[in-house]
Design a protein around this nucleic acid. Structure first.
Lengths: 174, 174
DNA sequence: ACCAATGTAAAACGATCGTTTTACATTGCA
DNA sequence: TGCAATGTAAAACGATCGTTTTACATTGGT
């Protein structure tokens, strides 16, 4: 595992578990097992590192959402929370922590959320056989809600969202 | 307006807009218009101040949710985001920023989310005429989802959630 | 008239922040 | 054999962190 991969993985773990602002660079160097000199040579700055973490996470997350049905969309979320745990959306959290004042971070978040929104629209269209932006918005809300409610209600929120989405989809079909 | 009220209001504004960790005490003293000596005499510590902000916000938020129908629940959220804007849930954000490692904050968040969960269950039971924990969970997910999706999709997520909840409720009734 | 309370302004506390630098070790290729 | 690249360890950078302290002003009640 090269230094870039190791650093990005360590950073994602710490930022996700303890927050971006609360994670100091010394904690990061220790977790990544490298000197601060190497870290900065590799990442440039803390904000750039966070942006890279988000871009990498977007890649991994969106890869799981390459599905054809709304049901599979929520099944993918179930897998995700089983693997990654329930700590809410790292993208929204990063943006909120920095008040949207760190351009590199704000841009990575905006790019992800736009891609996510598009993907939900595509899956709904594929599953339903036609575009339905209003339904897609509802599915997006359920997805986002399951993600955040899971923080204090546990993974059951994802099955609740999945069931709700199935009802909405069935109704849209008839 | 006494010092306690002024400080709490200023703190809520800054913590909400820029994040808890990113808000320094000097910024806080300036916004509250008081010396740091008075601030600490009044609040004790930064974490205690955040806990007070959350407790006060819980009071204000829950007061708006004293309704009898699910529709009114989402109407209340519509009012809330119109007044307070769309920056996600301050409770979950605070907890995430501190990794749950600040007891005063973690407790305030847990208390609020438990009260919120109970309230949603009550409103669903009142509206439906009977308890329905599964439906209540779905409504909670929609509420939380509208709150967080609104950060990047705008207030329309609340009407989307409201419409979805109406469909789920109608189906549960027949 | 005076004491106690309550406030301000500002310096200082040690700690930690993100980042850069200095000095040195290892390694792979020409 | 030697140079360039890539790494480490550790000190240092100035800035800022949350918090306490010192010294002083104002004010309301008995």
């Amino acid at each position: 595992m090269d230094m870039t991969t190791k650093l990005t993985a360590a950073a994602e773990r710490l930022f996700d578990r303890h927050g971006y602002m609360a994670t100091g660079m010394d904690r990061l160097t220790e977790a990544a097992g490298m000197s601060s000199r190497t870290l900065y040579k590799n990442a440039g700055s803390k904000a750039a590192l966070m942006a890279r973490v988000l871009t990498e996470r977007d890649r991994r997350f969106m890869a799981r959402l390459e599905v054809r049905t709304v049901d599979a969309l929520f099944a993918a979320l179930e897998d995700w929370v089983r693997v990654e745990g329930c700590r809410g959306c790292l993208f929204l959290r990063s943006r909120a922590e920095t008040g949207g004042d760190t351009p590199e971070i704000a841009e990575a978040v905006a790019a992800h959320k736009e891609a996510f929104h598009r993907r939900v629209g595509e899956v709904v269209a594929t599953d339903l056989g036609r575009e339905d932006p209003a339904l897609a918005e509802q599915v997006l809300v359920l997805f986002e809600g399951a993600t955040h409610a899971a923080v204090y209600r546990g993974a059951q929120t994802v099955s609740a969202a999945k069931a709700a989405a199935a009802i909405l989809l069935e109704r849209a079909r008839s």
